[in-house]
Simulated scan of single mutants.
Amino acid sequence: MDALDRKRKRLLYQASYRGFKEADLLIGGFARTHLAELTDNELAEFEALLKINDRELYAYATGNAPVPDNLEGAVMAKLRAFKLPGV
């Protein structure tokens, strides 16, 4: 397993265990769907997003709170557009 695979595995874990079920499902689901296709820059952006408080990130991702300018980017746009399958 190379360094990039280890990073993706770590990010998937961090995205899937956020602290409350809705965030786990949404952010973890996004990670399972998109991590393999994210560029290096997007992986860094996603890693930075995972450092945000769970409830704040969930509110930004669901459109329940405006996204601060410093968090706007390709990954946030993809996260906001992401819909869980079957929901």
Rank of each mutant, 00 (worst) to 15 (best):
M1P: 02
L4H: 04
L4S: 08
R6S: 11
K7R: 13
K9M: 15
K9G: 05
L11K: 11
L11R: 02
L11A: 03
L11E: 06
Q14Y: 14
A15T: 08
S16A: 12
Y17P: 04
Y17G: 07
G19H: 07
F20C: 08
A23W: 07
D24Q: 02
D24G: 02
L26G: 00
I27T: 03
G28Q: 07
G28I: 00
G28F: 03
G28H: 01
G29A: 04
F30H: 00
H34I: 12
L35F: 03
L35G: 07
L35C: 01
L38E: 09
T39K: 01
N41D: 14
L43P: 01
E45P: 00
F46D: 00
F46Y: 08
A48H: 14
L49E: 01
L50T: 02
L50Q: 03
K51F: 03
K51R: 13
I52C: 00
N53T: 13
E56S: 15
L57T: 02
Y58K: 02
Y58D: 04
Y58M: 14
A59T: 04
A59W: 00
Y60F: 10
T62A: 00
T62E: 03
G63A: 10
N64Q: 15
A65N: 11
P66E: 10
P66H: 13
P66S: 07
P68H: 06
P68C: 11
D69G: 10
N70V: 10
E72P: 01
E72V: 10
G73T: 08
V75F: 04
M76V: 11
A77M: 15
A77H: 09
K78A: 06
K78N: 04
L79W: 03
R80Y: 05
F82E: 02
G86M: 07
V87G: 10
V87N: 04
